[in-house]
Each structure stands twice: as structure tokens, then as C-alpha cells.
Simulated scan of single mutants.
Amino acid sequence: MASVPVYCLCRLPYDVTRFMIECDGCQDWFHGSCVGVEEEAAAEIDLYHCPQCAVLRGPSVMKRRRAAPKGAAGDADVGRPIRTGSAQFVRELRGRTFPSADEVLLKPSGAQLMVEDLEEPP
């Protein structure tokens, strides 16, 4: 029986409902809630180091903020991530166009498939 890969400090399998962040040091994945990183704040991180890598490589590195041009009457939220499910998120999503599945999905013929393609990795 194939084992399910586990991640994070909690050593649980992947859960699509929980935000995860990849460590730029060890390339392991961590639940934001387990390492104290909120999903909204993750967009401001340039290099993320998990607790173990932070000891070896130093703390995570935040992105540099660019100063707004003088005299610009810009929105304070420009460039900030939009919370999933918010009214602004839905408006922006509805305003976008997406390619049809026929343009994105690969549709191999039966002759192109091998038994190895259908088996789970060891």
C-alpha cells in the first residue's frame, strides 16, 4: 500500500482547505497556522525560512516596499493581496476571461499512454 506524503511540523498530509507555504531553504511545505504565517501576509515575504532553516539561514526576508511617487493619490491597498471570497475578489474574478479547457488540458490518445503513467509512484 502506498504511503501518503506528510508535510509541516504537524506531519499531516496535504489538505486543500488549509493555506501552506514552502520553505526556500529546505523546500518542505508548512501550514501557515503551524508556523505563524497568515495567508495575506505571505504575499509580502520574499524568502520564507521555516523555524528550522531560520536557525541556519536567518529569518525570512520580506519584500522591499517601494515608496509611492510624490503627489500620487494612490489607493493604499494597491499591490496588496485580495482576500479570497471578498466582494473585490469576486468582482475581479468576474472581470477576467479564462481559456477554455480545450486549450489547457492535454488529451493524449490511448496509444500515447503507458502503464507507468497510470501507476502511483512508489
Rank of each mutant, 00 (worst) to 15 (best):
I45L: 04
V37R: 02
P5T: 04
G110H: 09
M62N: 06
S3W: 03
L9D: 12
D75H: 14
Q52F: 07
G95A: 12
L118I: 10
K63N: 08
C50A: 05
G71V: 04
V61E: 07
V90F: 03
E22D: 13
G95F: 01
C26F: 12
M20N: 08
V6R: 12
G85T: 02
L118N: 04
Y14L: 11
E119F: 09
Y48C: 04
R66N: 11
L9T: 15
R65I: 13
K70A: 15
P69T: 11
V115H: 05
L118Y: 09
E92I: 02
G32V: 03
V16N: 14
A41M: 04
T84G: 00
F98N: 10
R57V: 00
R57S: 08
D15Q: 10
K70G: 09
V115P: 01
G36D: 02
T97I: 02
V61Y: 05
P59W: 01
P59A: 14
E92C: 03
S86Q: 02
A73L: 13
V61C: 07
A101Q: 12
G110S: 14
A111M: 09
A111D: 15
V35Q: 06
F98M: 07
S86Y: 01
L106C: 13
R57N: 13
C26Q: 09
P5V: 07
V90Q: 05
A87V: 06
S86P: 02
L106Y: 14
G95R: 05
V16E: 15
P69Q: 11
C23A: 10
V115G: 01
G32C: 07
V4T: 10
P121D: 08
Q88G: 00
V55W: 00
P5G: 06
A76G: 12
C8Y: 04
P108C: 09
R94T: 03
G58L: 12
V16C: 07
Y48H: 01
P5Q: 06
F89S: 05
M62T: 09
I21N: 01
K63Y: 01
F89N: 00
L113K: 11
P69I: 06
D77E: 15
D24S: 15
A41P: 00
G36R: 05
G71H: 07
E39C: 05
G58A: 08
Y48R: 01
L56G: 00
P51L: 02
A43E: 10
M20T: 15
G71W: 05
A41Y: 10
E92D: 11
M1Y: 06
Y7N: 06
F30Q: 00
G58V: 09
P13F: 03
K70H: 12
C8D: 13
R65G: 10
L105F: 13
Y7T: 05
G25D: 07
L47E: 08
L93Q: 05
L93N: 01
D46K: 12
C34I: 02
R18H: 14
W29C: 11
Y14E: 12
P69S: 13
S33D: 08
E44S: 14
Y48W: 06
V6F: 02
L93K: 04
R80H: 15
P121V: 13
G74M: 14
V6H: 06
D77H: 14
P122R: 11
G32Q: 02
L105K: 08
A54S: 14
T17L: 09
R96E: 04
A87C: 01
V78P: 00
D46Q: 08
A101F: 13
I45M: 03
P51G: 05
Q112E: 15
K107G: 10
A68S: 14
R66G: 13
L106Q: 15
